[in-house]
């Protein structure tokens, strides 16, 4: 039984650690892409290219993406720090894990979740918004490098060089939306545990009251 709970606990910790780590990596990527898009928009203007509505929109979305990427990293590192400590402690456990050690780990994780509930909710929101920003950037870039002729019905590719950046923007968008999905799942599972704890506390109060008589 202990091993089952231990392995479940370790699995959850590892899964959450992996997603948070992905958040940090893709947060950095998001910032890099946002800078790339901002710079290319500005360079286009100084290069004598006309100020198009699409270019202004791209620059605006990129700036939002940069801000989201930055907060994305700051929030992720905060969560990652605590998870890493708990994970390192769990790794050092030798099976069979004594009840108190395992319960101590669970208490630590719950306390960490409780402390960062707001941050996790913000991360879900930031990541979803970031995902949509990069999805928009990817789509806009795709529109920019394709031109469609209505009369002849042909599609022309303007530059092969733009394809990788558009695909990467789409990849960042997909990963950030997937991360939000997993973060929501993690949050749901721990919210449920929190509500069970609140109900269970009544039993602990009764034990304490009974013992004081």
């Amino acid at each position: 039984m202990t091993d089952t709970i231990h392995s479940r606990f370790s699995r959850e910790l590892n899964g959450f650690y992996l997603i948070t780590l992905l958040y940090v990596i893709f947060g950095a990527l998001a910032m890099a892409f946002a800078i790339h898009y901002i710079v290319s928009s500005v360079l286009g203007l100084t290069g004598g290219q006309p100020l198009s509505f699409l270019r202004i929109i791209t620059a605006a979305i990129s700036m939002i993406g940069f801000g989201l990427g930055l907060s994305w990293i700051v929030l992720s590192v905060e969560i990652l720090d605590g998870i890493d400590d708990i994970r390192s402690a769990v790794k050092d456990w030798t099976t069979p894990v004594p009840d108190e050690i395992l319960t101590g780990g669970i208490v630590r994780m719950i306390a960490h979740y409780r402390e960062h509930t707001k941050t996790i909710r913000t991360m879900i929101l930031v990541c979803t918004l970031g995902g949509f920003c990069f999805l928009a950037l990817g789509i806009i870039s795709s529109i920019e490098f394709f031109s469609f002729s209505l009369s002849s019905g042909t599609i022309t590719l303007k530059s092969y060089l733009l394809i990788p950046s558009a695909l990467l923007a789409l990849a960042v968008a997909i990963v950030s939306l997937a991360s939000s999905f997993y973060f929501s799942r993690f949050s749901k599972a721990w919210d449920l545990r929190e509500s069970v704890i609140s109900r269970a506390e009544q039993e602990l109060v009764e034990t304490l009251e009974r013992d004081s008589r």
Binding site: M1, T4, I5, R8, F9, R11, E12, G15, F16, L18, I19, D99, E100, L102, T103, I106, V107, I110, A178, F181, Y182, R185, F186, A189, W190, L192, R193, V196, I197, A200, E203, L204, T207, L208, D211
Partner: peptide, 26 residues
């Protein structure tokens, strides 16, 4: 002992009875 045992049981139940978080395909 009774308090420790009850507390341990309640917290272990969190992983015993509640479906946990898994990394799986949506």
């Amino acid at each position: 002992g009774e308090y420790i045992a009850l507390f341990t049981e309640l917290y272990r139940k969190l992983f015993d009875t509640i479906p946990g978080f898994k990394l799986c395909c949506p």
